[in-house]
Design a protein around this nucleic acid. Structure first.
Length: 644
DNA sequence: GTAGGGTTAG
């Protein structure tokens, strides 16, 4: 007769294999599996030789499915050597791939062969996947060959895995060859080819593949959307959202990956309206799948980034504080949002909180955010000590990004000799960002000779970029050295200027209005230009004089194309795209309403002064996001303290 | 077992 205790053991024994299996499949929350493991070892059942190999295998598969890989490996080692079969090895390999450890996965594949186990189709697909992630031609080719050597079926899934390996190893010709030989390519096959085509052959070629796809699912759409974002075309990405939601008869759902991509497009484009729509949509449609916590973390982080970059750092903060779980990326996104608003002290405060609470260890990106916040807010001493702490306390090897921030911080503060020494002492070659930043500081502080030297270095490194000639020419002009200034302008004129046209938009009642410099295509053009005249009149009354020589901004839209005449240049300044957006904003909204403008380039210093004045004349808060940061103009002042 | 995300420097 069994007593209750024994009966209970036997019952749990009968149940534990299916229970472990359901943990592995994600049907049961992981704690149940872990508790079962604990119970099995505590009661000694795990060590009964008659059942242990079965149970230990089931336990291992649970850990292999859930991770972390170290636990999976520990559990694997509990399986008797003679009882380690092909699926067990495969699960061990796949577990390492899923946790971004492809090289360890390949090592385990070798151990598997040494142990005498024979790979099957699934093992080889895993090996192909590991090789793809590493762009490892050697193991990739070996995996492909083994299908034929071992006489294993080369199914659509195998072929897909091989194509993906070739595509990720920059061997698109091989990938295409396999694709063209396929009788029935699946949507996965198409998506692999689409991804590969986009990465080597470009947006156009990818678009051709996309157009030829017999069907498209959420993954295919997300691939296209992400490609637009990578190419710096966030509006195209958002255009695809519209197409995706009305893709004929197919209803495509936004999953957490597409959510993150689209939110990133909103961040880039500064599109708060679509960003908010996505937020609402996410709240309404999110399903509580077993991995929803992970999805929630990622989408929340993307939302923090979106709100930060769309000028609603307040919403970003609320979301950040309410998040059930945060990781280093969430902290970094929050720090970056505050930094873009010039809230340097709040960045330092949040950083201190992060370190003291010990929730996450700062990484290199955290430190870039902190240093650039110091630079943007002119926190010289704070930045200096953070740069020291970077390696001393946080054990991070400074990268070129960190040096770039320091050079910028020192240069803006007028410590140009120190900035230059740092550039020369850096363990790596200075790049365009570092030299360009120093050159801009020379322009700010009128250091002509150092500026000239830097420009020569920049021209040698980046001969196609004429932006530096413009910058230096402006420096000479500002110092009344017109001959040198004109010489440089001639170089630019002869070589042609390659520059993105300046564009701004303002959103009014959910409609986005775009402007280029001197734009006259808007239906309300007459009213807009009338308002511009009124703005100039009121600014003149307030004692404003245009300062065309001071437009030595790093990039100003419509610059130089408008001829060399002073009046023409002045005229061009008056119709910069952000001013047109401002004029429309002023005539289309009620008094006192905050105006939010997004510009694709840096705001020029003249428009910057004009915006400060307009904010006080018209008693409006004007928020402009330019390429680098936010400017909040209020009562004659800007949040950047004229330091940008 | 095969396809797609997030945070960073002028």
């Amino acid at each position: 007769m069994l007593d209750d205790r024994e009966r209970c053991f036997l019952e749990s024994l009968a149940r534990c294999r299916p229970l472990l299996r359901s943990c592995a499949l994600g049907d049961t929350p992981p704690p149940h599996g872990y508790q079962l493991h604990a119970a099995l070892s505590k009661t000694g059942l795990l060590f009964l030789s008659s059942i242990s190999s079965n149970i230990s295998t089931a336990l291992f598969h649970m850990y292999a499915a859930l991770g972390p890989p170290a636990s999976a490996l520990r559990a694997f080692e509990e399986i008797p050597v003679a009882a380690r079969f092909t699926p067990d090895w495969t699960a061990l390999i796949s577990c390492h791939i899923r946790h971004a450890l492809p090289s360890r996965a390949i090592l385990f594949f070798r151990s598997m062969l040494r142990a005498g186990a024979s790979p099957d189709e699934v093992t080889l697909i895993a090996l192909l996947s590991a090789s793809a992630r590493l762009s490892d031609n050697f193991s990739g080719d070996a995996a492909h060959l083994l299908f034929f050597k071992l006489g294993l079926p080369f199914t659509a899934a195998s072929c897909n895995a091989a194509m993906d390996m070739y595509a990720k190893s920059s061997r698109m010709d091989e990938a295409w060859k396999l694709f063209k030989e396929m009788k029935n390519p699946t949507i996965v096959s198409w998506t692999i080819i689409l991804t590969g085509a986009l990465r080597w052959e470009g947006l156009r070629s990818g678009q051709e593949v996309f157009d030829r796809m017999p069907q498209r699912n959420d993954v295919a759409w997300t691939v296209m959307i992400s490609a637009c974002i990578e190419a710096g075309r966030p509006r195209d990405a958002l255009g695809l959202l519209g197409e995706m939601l009305f893709d004929g008869v197919h209803m495509v759902w936004l999953n957490h990956v597409s959510m993150c991509s689209l939110l990133s497009a909103c961040s880039q484009a500064g599109d708060l309206t679509v960003g908010r729509w996505l937020h609402t949509h996410f709240i309404k449609t999110t399903s509580f799948a077993n991995n929803y916590k992970d999805h929630l973390l990622k989408v929340n982080t993307a939302l923090i980034d979106m709100y930060g970059k769309c000028g609603r750092v307040d919403n970003a903060l609320t979301l950040f504080e309410r998040m059930p779980e945060r990781n280093i990326v969430s902290w970094n996104a929050m720090l970056s949002g505050l930094s873009m608003q010039g809230m340097g002290l709040r960045v330092l405060h949040l950083f201190t909180r992060m370190v003291t609470e010990g929730e996450e260890q700062p990484d290199d990106i955290t430190m870039v955010n902190v240093l650039s916040a110091c630079s943007r807010s002119g926190l010289l001493e704070e930045g200096r000590s953070m740069f020291q702490e970077l390696s001393l306390i946080y054990k991070i090897t400074p990268k070129i990004e960190h040096f770039a921030c320091m050079v910028d911080l020192l240069g803006r503060a007028g410590c140009l000799e120190e900035a230059e020494s740092l550039v020369r002492a850096m363990p790596m070659q200075p790049n365009e960002v570092v030299l360009g930043s120093l050159l801009a500081s020379c322009a700010l502080h009128g250091k002509l000779e150092l500026g000239r030297k830097l420009m020569q270095e920049l021209v040698q490194l980046y001969p196609d970029n004429t932006e530096y000639h413009v910058l230096l020419s402006n420096m000479f002009a500002a110092s009344q050295r017109h001959t040198e200034a004109d010489d440089l302008r001639m170089v630019v004129k002869n070589r042609g200027i390659q520059k993105t046209p300046g564009m701004s938009f303002i959103e009014i009642n959910g409609i986005v209005h775009w402007f280029t410099a001197g734009d006259k295509t808007h239906p309300q053009t007459i009213e807009i230009y009338t308002m511009l005249g009124e703005i100039v009149r009121r600014m003149n009354l307030a004692g404003y004089t245009i300062d065309a020589a001071s437009q030595n901004s790093r990039v100003a839209d419509n610059y130089l194309e408008n001829g060399d005449e002073r009046e023409e240049r002045e005229q061009a300044l008056l119709v910069h795209s952000e001013r047109l957006a401002l004029a429309l904003g002023l005539i289309s909204t009620k008094p006192g309403v905050t105006l939010r403008i997004v510009k694709n380039l840096r705001i020029c210093s003249d428009c910057h002064s004009a915006m400060k004045l307009c904010a006080s004349i018209f008693e409006r808060e004007i928020i402009i996001r330019d390429r680098n940061r936010f400017h909040c103009f209020k009562a004659g002042l800007c949040s950047c303290s004229d330091f940008w």
